[in-house]
Amino acid sequence: MADAGSAGLDRLERWMLAVVTHAGGSARGLRHARARRQIDVAVGDIERVVTRSSRLSAIERLDIYAEAYWLRLVEVMANEYPTTRDAMGERAFDAACRAYLARHPSTERLLLGLSAKFPDFLARRLRGKRGAALAVSLARIERAMEDVFDAPAGELLSPAAMAALPAAAWGRMRLELTPAMRLLALDCDANSHMTALRSRRSASRPRPRPAWVLVHRHGLRVLRTSLTREQYALLRLLGRGVPIGRAIARSCRDLRVSADRLPALLSGWFRDWAATGLFVAARVG
């Protein structure tokens, strides 16, 4: 532990970061072991480390950085999870963000991955609480939207190129899906709820039930598409490199549709997916 007045650069930096990132504010941060390991100074002696100005005490000056730390990072998360925030309410969301950041402080240069673990964190934090299914499902969709926004999309396989593929080889063909895509299995139909809110329609809170969503980027647009259980299963298998024929057989065996209508139904799915840039390559074998 260094003397407060002569602490070296490394100790000063570690001390200041420990103080201004403490969830309880600077004064409590000063007393925390993480700060005291660097410089052991009490609030009353803080001017041995930080000077006062004519209008602010040393601890008030540290508080400027402490408040900015939490405000900035919570604001970043609020921008990433606006609908989750609306569903939870501002206070509950803010508290969840602060708890998350205390557990998962940023270790990256960029803010892109700051809240990557937030949906899982929220699922643990809200387990068994009212409204948990909606809040967590919304968070998973909004996380996916952030991820695909920045992800590479790959060279798209156009609908025309899809149509030109030899029909006889379709069953053995493997499709490569765009990396700018996420498949979500959720605990409620949060996607329809989000769509209603975004179009300023009133929406009652959906009840918990299984729901599936595709989130992907097509050009500059991020798309959210509700899926059936079979569509979700089919896309998951295709994404794992399972040939189309086997993927259809495994995912659609419980589909309640007559055999003569199945080809048209599947053809429609693939046409829509190709038209929105879901496939980037096809190969036989």
Partner: peptide, 17 residues
């Protein structure tokens, strides 16, 4: 400035001594 230390980033422009 510095923005973080010990592997943690505060995402702020912290002053130097």
């Amino acid at each position: 400035c510095w923005t973080g230390v010990a592997g943690v980033n505060g995402h702020d422009l912290y002053p130097m001594p």
